[in-house]
Structures are given as C-alpha cells and as structure tokens.
Design a binder for these strands. Sequence first.
DNA 1: ATCTAAGCGAGACGGTACGTCACGTCTTGGG
DNA 2: CCCAAGACGTGACGTACCGTCTCGCTTAGAT
Lengths: 199, 199, 199, 199
Amino acid sequence: MDSSTKRKPGRPRSTKARVAILKAARELLQEGGLAAVTMEAIALRAGVGKPTIYRSWANRYEVAMAALVDAAPKTTASRARAGPLEALRHQLRQMAALFDSALGRSVATMLTAADGESEVARAFRNRFINARRDEGRALLDAAVLVGDLRGAFDIEIALDLIYGPFFYRLLMGHGGLGKGYADAIVDSLINGLGRSAKG
Amino acid sequence: MDSSTKRKPGRPRSTKARVAILKAARELLQEGGLAAVTMEAIALRAGVGKPTIYRSWANRYEVAMAALVDAAPKTTASRARAGPLEALRHQLRQMAALFDSALGRSVATMLTAADGESEVARAFRNRFINARRDEGRALLDAAVLVGDLRGAFDIEIALDLIYGPFFYRLLMGHGGLGKGYADAIVDSLINGLGRSAKG
Amino acid sequence: MDSSTKRKPGRPRSTKARVAILKAARELLQEGGLAAVTMEAIALRAGVGKPTIYRSWANRYEVAMAALVDAAPKTTASRARAGPLEALRHQLRQMAALFDSALGRSVATMLTAADGESEVARAFRNRFINARRDEGRALLDAAVLVGDLRGAFDIEIALDLIYGPFFYRLLMGHGGLGKGYADAIVDSLINGLGRSAKG
Amino acid sequence: MDSSTKRKPGRPRSTKARVAILKAARELLQEGGLAAVTMEAIALRAGVGKPTIYRSWANRYEVAMAALVDAAPKTTASRARAGPLEALRHQLRQMAALFDSALGRSVATMLTAADGESEVARAFRNRFINARRDEGRALLDAAVLVGDLRGAFDIEIALDLIYGPFFYRLLMGHGGLGKGYADAIVDSLINGLGRSAKG
DNA sequence: ATCTAAGCGAGACGGTACGTCACGTCTTGGG
DNA sequence: CCCAAGACGTGACGTACCGTCTCGCTTAGAT
C-alpha cells in the first residue's frame, strides 16, 4: 500500500546545492534586482553547475521566486488579537514592512515578469498574495459576524480595496509604505467617503 | 528675435523613422508581449537601423514605453458629465477597458521593469498614472464641494483606494477588469464597510 | 604514472566545430579575400555560434591565419636531392607556386594586418616564413660545406636576398611568380652582378 | 585663348580642408596605425564633414595613402655622386631610413590593404616603389656602361634582388633596417655567393 | 562489497540579442 | 555649389546569457 513512497534509484539531489542556490539568488536579488539574477551568476556564486539549477527550476524567474518564497515569513496574520479588525490591521502593517524593503520591488517585478502559470509562479502568488488575501477574507467574515462591519458588501471587492493600494504604491513608488499607511487604508475604507458616513 | 528656437545643425531626426519605430514596437508588444520587443525585431520591422533607435532611446524598455505613451489616449476623464462622481466612474471604466487589453499586462510589466528615473519612464508614469490620478483628485475635490462626498478624508489615501485595485487585479490576474468593476469599487468606497454606513 | 597529462574539467572543445570553422574560413578567404572572412560569415557557414569561435581565436585575423596554417604544407624543402642548391631551388619553386595562388595575397595581407605578437601570428610567421628560412639556412650551410658556395658571406643577408624578392613581387604585383622565377633568383644571386663574376 | 582653363561653376574646393584632412590622417596613422585612420576620426580631427573627404577620396585607404604620398620625399636618389653604384647605395640608405620609421609598417599594410587598381594606389606604388625602382634601373644601366657591373644579367631580377629584402624585413620584422643593411645587400649582390666570385 | 543509476562541478555547445562602431550616403541651413 | 554637421540604413563587432550537452567524478541505495 505504500509503494507510492518508493525511493528513486541513484544519487539523491543535494540539499547543500539547493540551499546554496537559493542563497545566491537571494543575494543577487538584493544586490542588483531581478536583472542580476542570471543563471550564470547563481551558478558561479553558489559553486554549482548550471544543470544542477535547471534540474530543479525551469528558468531564472523560478529560482528568484523560490528564493523569495523560501525567505519570506509563512504567515503574516496574528493570533489572538483584540478583534478581527485589529488582526487585519496587524497583518497589513507586516505586509507594508515586507514590501518596504529592498526585496519589495522584486516582488512586484516578478509578479509581472514570470510566466503566470508555472508551478513556482503559482506558489509565489499563493504565498505572497493569496495567503494574505485568504486571511483577510476570514477576518472580514469574522468582523461582520462580530458586528464590526456591516454585511452588505462584496467581500472580494473589499479585499481588492484593502490590498490593492499596497501594490499600487509598490509599483508607482509614490508615497512610502510606512506604519501609518495600513491604518489609514483601513480607516478610510471602513468609514467610506460618502456624505452619510460618520467620518 | 527669438534666437532660443535656433535649429540644431546637421540633418534633423527623421519623423518617418520615429513613427515606424513606435509602430513596430507597438505591434510587437501586442503580438508577443514585452519579451518580443527586441531592438533587432523593431529595426527589422520598421526598416530602420539599430543605431537610429539608440539615437532616440536608451534601451528596448524605453522604446516600448514610448510606444505605449504614443498610442495611449491623452485624457480619460470626460467633459460635461452629470457630476464629478459620474465623471470619475467614467474615467475608471475607460481605464479598466485599457488595462483589460493585450497591452494591459505590458503596462504593468514596464512599470516594474524599467529604470524608474529615466525620462521616458517618468513620462510613462505621468501619462498612464499621474494624469489619471490628477484628474481623479480634481474630481474628488469637486465632489466634496458639490456635497456628494464628505470632506473629512485624506485625499491621497482615497486616490490609492480608487486606483490601487486596478493594478492589483492587473498584477495578480484574479478577477477581470470588466465594466462593473469600476462601479463596484466606487460604490464600496463611497458607502464604506463600517456599521454606520448606509449600505 | 603520468598524472601531468590530466584532463581539464568540463566538456572538451569540439573537434567538429574547429574543423568546420577552419574550413569555412578557408573558403571565405579564397572567395572574397581577407575582407570576406568575418566572424558572422564563418559562424553562419560553419553552423557554429560566434562565441565558439571566440573561445579559440581572438579575432577574425587569427581565424584566417589558423585556417592558412592548417591548410599549408608543413615542409616545402625536398629530401634526397642531387645537392643542397638543387634542394633550395626546389623549395623556392614550391614557395612560388604557393604564393602564386588565390591565397597568396592573403598571406601578405595577413602578415601586415594582424597583431604581430599574438600566438597565432607567431605560428603563422613560423610556419610560412621561418620554417622555410630555416630550411634555407641549412641548405646554404650545406652548400658551403660541399663547396658549391664560397663561405665568406653573411648568411642572414643571403637569406634575405633569396626570399625577399618573392614577397616583393607578392606585394607589388609586378611580374608573376612563375616557375622560372625561383631559378632566376638563385642564378643571379650565385653569380653576382659584379665584374669579376663569371657570368 | 585660355578658355580651356575654364573655371568650374560653384564654390571651389577648400585647400584648407584638404590640408587639414591630410594632416589629420598622417597624425592618426602615426598614433594608431592604419586601423586608427577612420573617416570619422579624420573628420573630427580635421574639423571637416565626412562628405568633404569623400568628395576627394574614395575610402579611408585612399586618404591614408594620399597622406603618405603627400608627406614622403619626392626623390631619394642623389645627384652628382662618385658613381652609379655609390648613388644606388645612397638611395637604398635613404629608403631604409624611411621604412625604419613609425610609418614604415603602414606602407606595407597599405600596399596589401588597398584596392590595387585605384588611382591613389597606383600613385602610391609609383611614388614609393616604382620611382625608386626606375632610378635603380637607370643606375644599374649606368653601372654596366661604366663597367662597374658585368652586363649579362636580367635587370628586373636584379632590381627584385635589390629592393625585395627591404620589404621582406619590413613585413617580417626580423632584423632592423639600419644603415649597414643597404650596403650589405649591395655588396653581397655584387660579389655573388658562388665559388668563383671574388669575395 | 560491489554494482549502478543519478547527481555533481565544470565548461563547451548553437543561439539570440545586446549595445557600439564605422561605413558610405543623404539632408539640413549657411557662406 | 561647397561646407560643417549630423542623421540615415547597413552590417560586423565582441560580450552576456540562454538552455542543452558532454565530460570524468562522486555518492548512496539496491543487489
């Protein structure tokens, strides 16, 4: 019944090589952006042959993404907060901090540069975007349940409104992604811009 | 009397060549994305020498940007609408349509790929982003004056909330940028998510 | 036991590529002279990438030289002749024939066009010039020993007098390099121009 | 009566430009060899438009040749010498000195590089080679008449033997072209290498 | 205790595109 | 009609990486 876990014959992939490759890619990404993450540079820096890289990743974008995925924090939401809205604010503050780094711009670059359907691209999106969005969705649901938010809105639109501004600023570079930004987004969004709103 | 408009000596740049280059770049962009916009392909298709391209643009990204800038509609807001909010909705619908095309993804790619400080990159940002944002700012101001919106909100944050979602979807590819999207964004934003909102 | 012949790591250079490159260069040289021997043309004709050529030669002149060196007969002197002077005449006739070909002018061109200190340039000189000159020196020595030539002359000057005229005609194009030329040179040189000479 | 010297219409060619062009070409030749004599460099240095150069010369080799022709001494033989052989020696010494300069190698290069049938190439050959050869021929004739040389030799072969060694050394770079060289050539040639020669 | 399949580093391979240089021609306005 | 300036189409340059393909050498599980 367990024949599915059969070991493949031959020498297994080297963990040391994998680690060295991802480390090299991460460093190159920080030093020169995505453009500096070339297979040749990775191979040279990691002390690894190019075929060893290609054995695990299809192209340089995949390696770069894997390096980011490997380095990024797995979860950004908090446990045990005062309430769902507070937890959401916390998540957004963490996200702002992550994107406000040298690697931040790389994230945006890679989101546009890589083939959208590769496995690593999907993993990248899932890890960096969807995980947060899913967390956000759960928190919004909870907030509605708790009564902190009214219920009559399209939750996917709401999520776009919450996370969109971060990527907008990341892309355009207008204005920073400082601490207050996350709160300003949430506040404006909750209060609304309309006349009848309480603001 | 106006010696400041003195011509430069030598043969002037060829308008025909410039037009052919931008046309070729635009076509290549549509056919194969930014990756297909190579100097060699442009030169071949435009019937132009590579040095002629380099005389006007520093690299292929600049040409691609210039092609988009050249092709894009100058203004997206409307004149003479029912009111500022209606004008804003109209602008967003146009923007959604623009980004929902084959060129949409190229815009995002280029926003991340090109040197942020080159002259064309700035022009690109100005034309595609800031012009719309400036229009939006004026419309929000007007809406406040008219009384369609309450006044107590940070207008830059509001602009991020309005335009951010478009780029978010453009980057992530989750959900389309159909007609209803623009309205959904505006509605949700005006009404707010909070309990006291009227929605 | 002979660990000094250790292989270099990595994939070895392709003999097939090398042969194809030299063949292509040789053909181009014959068809259009040195000017036709461009890296692009060689790569195209040999079905080889340009970097592969550059891996083995520094520039097109080197490739052209290598092609000639590769193609040229190794030795031009004869073995077992009636005597040293007869052997010298034979060598000169062969040399005249070599230079009186489509490649002849290329030899002269390359002697002047290429960097005088590169390895291939030296090989070229050695193969085409010095090997013959060395042979000639040995034959002159032998002729003196045998008593066919008087001994009291500067042998290097004599060698210049023997081989110089060939290059002179090669360069200037005045007069051909036919069969009789080699003999005329030797005869005139042996007899001398002076009054007391026997001629 | 002098209508044959009718002026051509329009502005005459600028002597100043011509002089500046040749000066620039000469300098470039000395500084970087023939490879440095590019039309662009000449135009820049001479403060002249490229078309102005092309109006007078067909290509860069022509300009380089013209520069050398323009700079070189017109005659190298002497007047009023002790005898024809002495005059010949004098000519050869001058020739050795000329070729033993920075420009010497350029002469050889140009002899091989340029189209052999252009007007300037012919002029170059005539000025640098044939004029000397013609002088030499006259001097050999005179020497035979005077009795300094025996008459029974092919004079063209003799001329090859006299001038060939200079180009040989120029091309090969073996041995210099110092003062003694001219005399050594003449002496060896007159005495001959044969047993019955007087040396 | 081998055998053996696959991984390893190294680096050459055929390619594509890069950005540069010089070519020789053409097109300006000015003298 | 020449001149300087300089843009034009062309084409080769030499370089950087691409992704693939040998090489000879481990390495570790299976025999």
